Amino acid sequence: MNKEKSQALTAVYITTSLGMGGAEEILAKLANGLTELGDRIVIFSLSGDGYHGERLRRRGIEVYSVGAERTNFSSAFIWVVELIRLFFAIKRLRPGLIHSWMYPADIVGGVIGVMLRVPVIWGVFSGSTDRRFYSRRTHNFIKVCARLSHYLPALIISCSSYGRDTHISVGYRESRFLYIPTGFTRSLKENISKLDSKRTTLSVTADTMLVVGMLGRYTVEKDHVALVRAAGSINQTSERVYLVFAGGEGITNHNDEFVKEIEHAGMISSTTLLGQIADKDAFFQAIDVFALISHSEGFPTVIGEAMSHGLPCIVSDAGDAEILVGDQSQIIKMESGSITEKIAERILEFSNNQQLRKEIGLRNRQRIEALFSEKLMIRRYRKAYMHVVKKK
């Protein structure tokens, strides 16, 4: 520990967002962990405080918003002014390195780093680079970053081996990449009262229904509907499955498209849409099985979080899901056969065998602790940082 503190560094993070996404969660974990080691962490967000901003400040981390209250990306002049202010703010800090988070921030951080002669690290958190899964603007950012990756960053850290490969395939410089998987931690104390309260709120009886939860926004790459249809096919004969969906955009009763799918599957009385949630621990404690059905992922953080809570999983083979789970019995192959039928089969297996759920859940927790701990992730990042700083 003393050795770590004697080599303390000042690291500046420039992030596109501080919302509730997986990339932002990694940033929060890393900032907290490095601060505990004695490093000075300063975060500049291009889109306001989001979910993590004030929480990070309470941990003693400096967090600043860049123009978020005054404008948006459409106002070019004001953003030029704000970026000039950002340049001088970082110059005054004299950081050892700049680590940018997500595509727009990669461009901003890369240019500022070159101007200040400060080494820049980019962060890649996406899986697929397929145009179908991005807005036109974001996909254009990817193409620009691919070209600039040959000149601006000293290192590109990807949390996903799949994401590393897909970005290299669209032109990112291969020799710059380093793969560091996400790390996880959890409280060892189970909050049983919170679990009971949540089940009561959902009108679920633990003895009669299997609660399957999915955490993620309603987007084109996620397949919430396949899970709904699978559960609906089971409940046609007996009401055995209860679904709980949580996440950001689209996971509310105001999403007419999703609600119609739930009604059509006959699951309207056996489904709860929680929307955005602040307490993910309570969510994981309230379910029996975690599901993530997706056509595209990088390193699916929510799977690791579910595993760290001792939950069995039903997840698609997108991104690094198979690396995380390491168990084919929990994987759904998306490219072969009926996805809905496969999901239903896995749900029935878990529904009929409580002991199986416990055994797989325990193995999942042990796997996370052994291979994907948060402490190990922080050590890997810091080792990479010190290597880049020493090469400067």
Rank of each mutant, 00 (worst) to 15 (best):
I332D: 03
L195F: 06
L348Y: 06
T15M: 07
D223R: 13
L30Y: 02
V211A: 15
P300I: 05
E82I: 05
V80R: 10
K342S: 12
S197Y: 09
R94Q: 14
K5W: 07
S238R: 14
V124K: 06
V80Q: 09
A286I: 06
S45A: 06
I293H: 02
D196N: 12
S175T: 03
I84L: 14
T129I: 00
C159N: 15
L362T: 11
Y51Q: 10
E174L: 00
V315Q: 03
R379M: 08
H309A: 09
V302D: 04
R58G: 15
Y151T: 10
I142F: 14
R92V: 14
Y64Q: 14
H99C: 01
S294V: 08
S336G: 05
R367F: 02
A28K: 08
A11V: 15
V289H: 00
I112D: 06
A11F: 02
L9I: 15
M307S: 03
A146V: 07
P119V: 12
G247E: 13
K198I: 02
C313N: 06
L9C: 12
V302N: 07
L362I: 03
A68S: 14
V124H: 02
Q285E: 15
K3M: 09
G275T: 04
T301D: 07
K194D: 13
S296T: 12
R365T: 04
T166M: 05
A146K: 11
V204Q: 01
I343N: 07
L152I: 10
F245Q: 00
G19W: 11
K29H: 14
I142P: 00
W101P: 04
L202N: 12
F283K: 02
K280N: 00
A230P: 09
A89Q: 13
K3G: 03
E24H: 05
I168M: 03
G127P: 01
I84Q: 00
I121A: 04
H387G: 07
L178D: 00
S6T: 09
K358E: 15
G326S: 11
G247R: 11
E335I: 02
P312C: 04
I192A: 11
R379H: 09
A278F: 10
I293W: 01
G33A: 06
L9V: 15
T166F: 00
A28Y: 10
K29G: 12
G96S: 11
G113I: 00
T185E: 09
G22P: 09
V244T: 09
R240C: 02
A344Y: 14
L46G: 01
K222S: 06
L116F: 13
I234A: 02
